[in-house]
């Protein structure tokens, strides 16, 4: 089955991004496809390559980048939400791309299921 995922909260502040990641990983492990993850609201902060957690903590941003690389997951950051919050191409982590809200609509029309994680 083809999945779309929406992440509406930033990393470390809220569990949403962790839940979304663990869901995506489990779906892929079962042979499903995670076609796109769309980051909206404060969720755009999951894409900042300037993120530097303490060494004994999980690296939420790198974890998404790795998932994108290993399983061809399209990580899309909403442009309007990103610009509001100081996320731009120059501080974007690997595997993420900035695009419009139409990509969220597409994640609804082109997948079998769209799951939202937020507050």
């Amino acid at each position: 089955m083809k999945f779309g995922i929406v992440v509406n909260e930033g990393p470390y502040q809220h569990q949403a991004s962790d839940s979304a990641y663990l869901f995506a990983k489990a779906a892929i492990a079962q042979g499903h496809e995670v076609w796109r993850v769309f980051f909206y609201h404060d969720g755009v902060n999951n894409s900042s390559k300037l993120t530097e957690p303490p060494q004994d903590d999980r690296n939420i941003v790198n974890r998404w980048s790795r998932l994108a690389e290993e399983h061809k997951v399209d990580l899309v950051v909403c442009v309007a939400a990103a610009l509001r919050r100081g996320i731009r191409d120059e501080n974007l982590a690997q595997g993420f791309r900035i695009s419009g809200l139409g990509q969220l609509v597409e994640a609804g029309t082109q997948t079998d299921r769209l799951i939202t994680f937020g507050d």
Binding site: M1, F3, N8, L22, F23, K25, A26, A27, A29, Q30, H32, R113, I115, T116, F117, G118, D119
Partner: peptide
Amino acid sequence: VDYAGFVDLTVSNKSCQSWL
């Protein structure tokens, strides 16, 4: 359920809603 069970629930239901 674990995360795999979570995935199964989204598959067995035709749609899902996160009550945010």
